[in-house]
Computed example of a mutant assay.
Amino acid sequence: MITTVLVEDLDPASVDAGVAAHYGDPAREQRLLAESVGLVDRGNRGVVTVTGPDRLGWLHSITTQHVAALAPLTGTELLVLSPHGHVEHHAGVLDDGTTTWLDTEPGRAPALLEFLSRMRFLMRVEPADVTADWAILSLVGPDTTRVLSALGVGPLAAPDVVAVPGPKFAAGSVPARSTSEYATAALPAGGFARRMPYGADLIVPRASVSSLTSSLDVPPAGLWAFEALRVAAGRPRLGFDTDHKTLPAEIGWLAAAVHLEKGCYRGQETVARVHNLGRPPRRLVLLHLDGITTDSPPAPGTPVVSAEGRPVGVTGTAVRHHELGLVALALVKQNVAADARLQVGDSAAAIDPEPFGS
């Protein structure tokens, strides 16, 4: 019998409440996602739809991504920035030819909908929060293609991500398309499958979640396992690994979610200035924590301190990884050396020497 432990059973205040943290063995579930494939319930994510003939051109004009020519059944990612270029929203995108689907962090759909509604003006668009009716499930692992084929939608092409040009790049260096393109297909029983770097997301009606999961020959894995692999891969989450002053260039979102040559949008000037300078104020790193004094992961926002006692950054998500041990994502100042001796709470910390994606 599977033992389901919900996130709120372990942390009643977590914004990730509503889904399983694990099913009895978090380390085994991590290995499952790393070596085979598992199904992760991410149904706590918010889902916003935009319909209307102007939807793609309108989203193109108010977000960081080039979506004006997004082909039907294609996905990508986008950001909404503040006037000063700080990240306010991050969303996965899927357009089915008549509707653009935006999935975002738990609890953030109302704020995203409020922003979109304020920006409508005279455009023929209709944004709506459909979180109550639609859920996100994620297939994670190297055997994802096999499961997609069994669902009747595979194989889907691997993610296509445009390389980020260097500072002061020549005009025309970035093609006039979304900087990340994720192959998508309609599911025969309703909903969509979207290929992602970690596997695939299934966007399905909540009413069909139970029948879909029971029909798949895929073992479940909890959010803890998904988060552990996410941290090791250096994939940030808004609100977990970002703060109110986070810039896209600091956390590696330029490639997936920002088009550096498209027209004006809120915060574009800051994006261009930071990229042309080539050194954002902070950078996202993976910290290895010694776990000698404590094996409890530090809370998000815990200061990262230099050997001299100076604050040089803050932690984001911290996890116990099945191979790496206790690790955490952190935003640290750009001038912190890669071999610096650091402290996080009671734990000594060291920056992983391998850049994300290497």
Results as ranks from 00 to 15, higher is better:
Pro220Thr: 03
Ala330Cys: 11
Val161Leu: 07
His275Cys: 00
Gly18Val: 05
Leu79Ser: 11
Ala207Met: 03
Val218Asn: 10
Pro297Val: 00
Pro280Ser: 02
Ala171Leu: 03
Ala340Gln: 05
Thr104Ser: 04
Arg31Cys: 01
Cys264Lys: 09
Ala170Asp: 15
Gly46Arg: 03
Arg341His: 12
Pro353Asn: 03
Phe192Leu: 06
Val40Glu: 08
Pro297Gly: 07
Leu73Phe: 15
Leu326Pro: 09
Ser214Cys: 01
Pro26Asn: 10
Arg31Phe: 10
His259Trp: 12
Val274Ala: 11
Pro142Phe: 05
Pro353His: 05
Ala349Ile: 02
Ala257Asn: 06
Leu216Arg: 13
Leu247Cys: 01
His244Asn: 10
Lys245Thr: 14
Arg341Ala: 15
Ala69Gly: 08
Ser211Asp: 15
Ser180Lys: 07
Val174Arg: 01
Val231Glu: 08
Ala91Tyr: 06
Gly325Lys: 07
Gly191Met: 05
Val305Phe: 03
Arg31Lys: 06
Ser149Ala: 11
Phe192Asn: 03
Asp11Lys: 13
Pro298His: 05
Pro110Phe: 11
Ala170Lys: 14
Thr64Gly: 05
Ile136Ser: 04
Leu229Trp: 10
Ala111Asn: 10
Leu112Gln: 07
Val305Thr: 09
Phe169Glu: 04
Gly222Trp: 05
Ser138Gln: 14
Thr145Ala: 15
Ala171Trp: 02
Ala337Asn: 08
Leu116Pro: 10
Thr63Pro: 08
Pro298Gly: 01
Ser306Asn: 07
Lys168Asp: 15
Val274Phe: 13
Val140Phe: 11
Thr3Asn: 14
Asp95Tyr: 13
Trp224Arg: 14
Pro197Asp: 04
Val162Met: 03
Gln334Phe: 12
Leu286Ser: 09
Glu250Phe: 08
Thr213Asn: 00
Asp352Cys: 03
Ala340His: 14
Glu126Pro: 00
Val87His: 07
Pro281Asn: 07
Ser211Val: 08
Ala307Gly: 05
Ala348Arg: 14
Val271Met: 06
Val7Gly: 10
Ala34Val: 00
His60Tyr: 14
Ser210Glu: 14
Pro175Leu: 01
Thr242Asn: 07
Glu227Arg: 15
Ala257Ser: 15
Arg42Thr: 01
